[in-house]
């Protein structure tokens, strides 16, 4: 997946689509941004300049699907995190999750959320639940899995048509489909022909915290030098001047 930060206007449609697709329960009245369930977050960052040089970028953050020594998978004591060797997607098995939250500690992207409360839907919302995705119970960890329900649907469709491989057009995660500016491109990074592969190798493509060595499979793209500089810094607050490289 490649996300073009220059196109993202921070509308949050991706986060809403994600919640609807994956049956994320509405946040409890007393919940806050730090303890509500949310698989996708969009953060605003600024270059801290005055007008007219001032600029803002929006960064959608969710599971980056680490390839190398996937931090969450290696620490889970009971194999509740698995990396699909075919698709490379990092999945979560909520039925096996103990809720120890060690994976959340291990994740450098804070892309995992815990179900602190019992999920609750109003009657009207219950009718809107996605039948393809099982809701998660209280006390387990969940995360983005590139819309597993949609992958299953695509596979079923391929099987029904007698194909072994899914049609890439059939499998598009909800965030990708809902983005009004087409900022997110999704596909097979191993496929040299694909758009994602081309974009991930283009100038201005980068990954967050790449030096940790976890080889995430989500790329970001920007032409703005200050956003690049920001991404390559780890702790920003202390040395703001370095952002303008």
């Amino acid at each position: 997946m490649v996300i073009d930060l220059d196109r993202c206007n921070g509308c949050g449609a991706c986060a809403v689509a994600c919640a609807v697709e994956n049956n994320v329960p509405p946040a409890h009245q007393q919940a806050n941004t730090r303890n509500a369930v949310s698989l996708m977050n969009v953060s605003a960052v600024s270059n801290h300049e005055q007008f007219p040089a001032g600029d803002t970028a929006y960064i959608p953050m969710f599971c980056q699907q680490c390839e190398n020594e996937t931090p969450c998978m290696t620490v889970c004591p009971q194999n509740a995190v698995d990396v699909d060797p075919v698709t490379g997607i990092v999945g979560q098995v909520p039925q096996r999750c103990l809720g120890c939250r060690y994976c959340m500690t291990a994740c450098p992207y804070h892309a995992r959320t815990f179900n602190w409360r019992d999920p609750e839907w109003t009657d009207g919302m219950k009718a809107q639940l996605n039948p393809a995705v099982a809701p998660r119970m209280r006390g387990v960890v969940e995360k983005c899995n590139f819309c597993h329900g949609r992958l299953h649907a695509a596979r079923e469709k391929a099987a029904a048509a007698g194909r072994n491989e899914i049609d890439p057009a059939d499998y598009v995660p909800a965030c990708v489909a809902s983005c009004p500016t087409n900022a997110i491109t999704f596909g097979d990074l191993n496929d040299e022909e694909s758009d994602v592969c081309r974009l991930s190798k283009s100038d201005g493509a980068f990954r967050f915290l790449a030096r940790l060595g976890t080889e995430p499979k989500v790329y970001y793209h920007t032409t703005k030098p200050w956003v690049r500089a920001l991404a390559e810094r780890s702790l920003t607050r202390t040395r703001q001047e370095e952002f303008h490289g």
């Binding site: 096996r96 809720g99 006390g139």
Partner: peptide, 11 residues
Amino acid sequence: DVGQPLRAWFT
């Protein structure tokens, strides 16, 4: 501390 203590034996 864990969310689902009854699953502790899964380990």
